[in-house]
């Protein structure tokens, strides 16, 4: 029998693969996320367009709109990751079979996969539809990547917390918002910088997003077994 980190990763991989298989067969979370993302994007692009905002305001407003769409789309689907186990009564079989850390890692990787698909489809569509000009593409990609990873980690642990609550939807938003707010502000600032500056010194926002991600994953790995076993 394998021991240590490799065992956890193999078990997490099994959970991720099962979730992917279920998602490909039901498409519940992906449909919810993409429908929300693209209906909001189309509504925003039609109502604002690229002509009604002054050029000086565009970097900030576009960055804010992009992250509002990304975060709220993510919230609409990622919260389901543990709720679906609770509703289908499969939570007990998962508890009986897998270690909490493996479960968290597997679910986190699944949520990150969904976010990756969302980002890969939504961000280019947003850039094209809104006429979003980016001066530093590398910085922009780094901010979007690491802030998305942080968003995935934050929503996954909150999803675990609210899985057994009776008013899950409201609770998920209420708990997620203060947890994700610093990340959202950082990501907006980073994307604004990427739109204005061709070379960004210091990569401050990327570093903050990486720090947020590391803190969130470390805390979650300690916190999740307590949440899971109660």
């Amino acid at each position: 029998m394998q021991t240590g980190l490799l065992t956890y990763l193999n078990e997490a991989k099994a959970i991720w693969l099962r979730d992917m298989k279920s998602e490909l067969r039901t498409r519940y979370a992906m449909n919810a996320i993409l429908m929300f993302a693209f209906t909001t994007l189309i509504a925003v692009s039609f109502s604002l367009g690229s002509f009604r905002i002054s050029d000086s305001d565009k970097p900030f407003i576009y960055a804010a709109l992009l992250w509002i769409i990304l975060i709220f789309s993510a919230l609409s689907g990622l919260a389901r990751i543990f709720v679906k186990e609770e509703e289908a009564h499969t939570i007990d079989i998962l508890k009986l079979s897998a270690r909490p850390q493996s479960i968290f890692l597997g679910k986190l990787i699944f949520n990150l996969t969904l976010l990756g698909i969302l980002g890969a489809l939504l961000v280019p569509a947003f850039i094209v539809l809104m006429g979003y000009r980016i001066a530093s593409p590398l910085y922009f990609v780094a901010v979007v990547l690491f802030a998305s990873l942080g968003l995935g980690a934050g929503t996954t642990i909150v999803a675990a917390m609210i899985a057994r609550a009776s008013v899950r939807g409201a609770l998920f938003s209420a708990v997620s918002f203060p947890l994700l707010f610093p990340l959202m502000i950082t990501a907006i600032k980073g994307c604004e910088k990427a739109a204005i500056q061709t070379t960004v010194a210091g990569w401050n926002e990327v570093n903050i997003c990486i720090a947020y991600l590391v803190i969130m994953i470390t805390l979650s790995l300690f916190l999740f077994p307590v949440i899971w076993e109660e």
Binding site: N10, L17, K21, T90, D92, I93, S97
Partner: peptide
């Protein structure tokens, strides 16, 4: 206690062995 509706019997057993 329930198993996964969207998985077959073999897939359910394989998953539980893997985890």
């Amino acid at each position: 206690l329930a198993l996964y509706d969207e998985l077959s019997a073999i897939e359910n057993l394989e998953f539980l062995a893997q985890v």
